[in-house]
Design a protein around this nucleic acid. Structure first.
Lengths: 184, 184
DNA sequence: GAATACATGTAAAATGTTACATGATTTT
DNA sequence: AAAATCATGTAACATTTTACATGTATTC
C-alpha cells in the first residue's frame, strides 16, 4: 500500500531504474521500509499505467538496457497529498521471536536461551550498522546545504533504528536473566 | 506464515472456536501478533485439511452454532518442531510514520509536528494499555501454579510492548524538538 | 574457472485485507 | 429504534514472497 509512496518519494529527488530504487531503499529506508526487487518492478509498472510516473529505456554499452522512471505532476500531487495527511493509526507489529517466546514454556530453557543469544548478536550487528554505515550514507546524501532539512529527518529515522535496537538488546538481556533463573 | 503456529499455540492450551481465538489474540498477542477474523477462519480450515487440528460443531441455545477446533498429535509435533528450531533472522519492520517522515522535508514543519503529536498520544494510550489491561489479563491467565513459567514468558512479551512504547515516545519527543528548531 | 554484480522481468503461491452476507440477542 | 455483540463464513482484491528465466561483465 505504501510502497508506491516510497518509490514516488525517491523519484521525486531524481529519476531512477527499478534496480536503483532497490539499492536506495536498502541503504536508506531498510530500517523501516523494504521491498523485494520483483515487487518494485511490478509496482513501478502499475504506477506508470496509473499515470503517476513515466519511463524510457536507456541503453548502455556493457550492460543490459535500463528502464528509467521519472515522476510526473500527477505523481507529485499524489505524494504531496499523502504527506500532508497526518497518520492517525499505529502500525501493528509482527515479531516472530515474541510469538515463539509466548508459547515456549513447553521447550527447554536451554533452547530458549540459545535463541535469545542468537537474536542478541543479530540485533547488536544491526545496531552497529545504524551507527556506522547508515550514518555515513546519510551524511553523504545530505552534504549539500539545500539538503539540510532532509538530512535532519533522515537522521531522525536512523536514530529510531538505533533506539529500537538498543531497546531490543536491553529487553533480550532482561529476558535472558528471567529464563536463566529457571535453571537453578 | 506464522499465523498457524499462533493458532496451534493457543489450541495447545485448550480447544477453541475461531471466534475465541480472535478474542484471545486481541487480549494477549496483539502487541506482536495479530490477524483478522476472516484470516483466522480460513487458516483454521486449511489447517484441518492438513491434519493439524480437528473440529466439531457445538450447538448453543441462544446463539448460532460454534465450530470448536482441537489440536491433534500431528499439530503438536508441528508446533514443537517450530518452537525447538531457533529463529536466526530478524523481522523486517514497516513503519509508515517513518516512511512519511523520511520524505517530509517538502511539507510544512507545522504539519509534521501535528502528525508527531497525534502519534505521541496514540503511543501513550498503547503504553497505558500494556501497563493496565494487558498486565491484568496475564496475571489472570497465569494465576494457577502450573502456569508459572508460561506467565513469566507472557510477562516478558508484555514488557517488550512497554519498552517499545517508551522508546517510541522518547524518540517522538526527540524528533519533535528537532522539527521545532526549524520554526525560528 | 567460479562466483558475484549488473539488469530485467514473469509466474505462481502465499499471505493478508476489505467487503459482503446472515441472523439472533443484548445493550444503549 | 438503533447499535453493538455473538458467531459464522465467502469472495474479491491487494500485497508480498519465492521461484524461474536470461545473459554480460567483473572480480576472486
Amino acid at each position: 500500500m505504501s510502497l508506491k509512496y516510497a518509490l514516488l518519494g525517491f523519484l521525486n529527488y531524481q529519476s531512477c531504474s527499478g534496480y536503483d530504487l532497490k539499492q536506495l531503499m536498502d541503504v536508506s529506508t531498510s530500517n523501516f521500509w523494504h521491498a523485494k526487487q520483483s515487487q518494485i518492478y511490478t509496482t513501478l509498472k502499475k504506477m506508470e499505467k496509473d499515470g503517476l510516473i513515466l519511463s524510457h529505456v536507456q541503453s548502455q554499452e556493457s550492460h543490459p538496457d535500463r528502464r528509467v522512471y521519472q515522476i510526473v505532476e500527477a505523481g507529485k500531487a499524489y505524494l504531496g497529498e499523502w504527506l500532508a495527511q497526518p497518520l492517525i493509526t499505529i502500525e501493528a507489529r509482527k515479531e516472530t521471536l515474541l510469538l515463539k517466546l509466548f508459547f515456549s514454556a513447553q521447550i527447554s530453557p536451554q533452547k530458549i536461551l540459545t535463541e535469545l543469544r542468537i537474536q542478541r548478536n543479530l540485533h547488536q550487528a544491526n545496531l552497529d550498522k545504524y551507527q556506522t554505515t547508515t550514518k555515513d550514507v546519510i551524511s553523504q546524501f545530505s552534504a549539500s546545504p539545500d539538503m539540510a532539512d532532509d538530512g535532519q529527518l533522515w537522521e531522525a529515522t536512523r536514530r529510531f533504528g538505533e533506539l529500537y535496537e538498543e531497546m531490543f538488546i536491553c529487553w533480550l538481556d532482561e529476558t535472558i536473566e528471567v529464563v536463566k533463573g529457571w535453571e537453578v
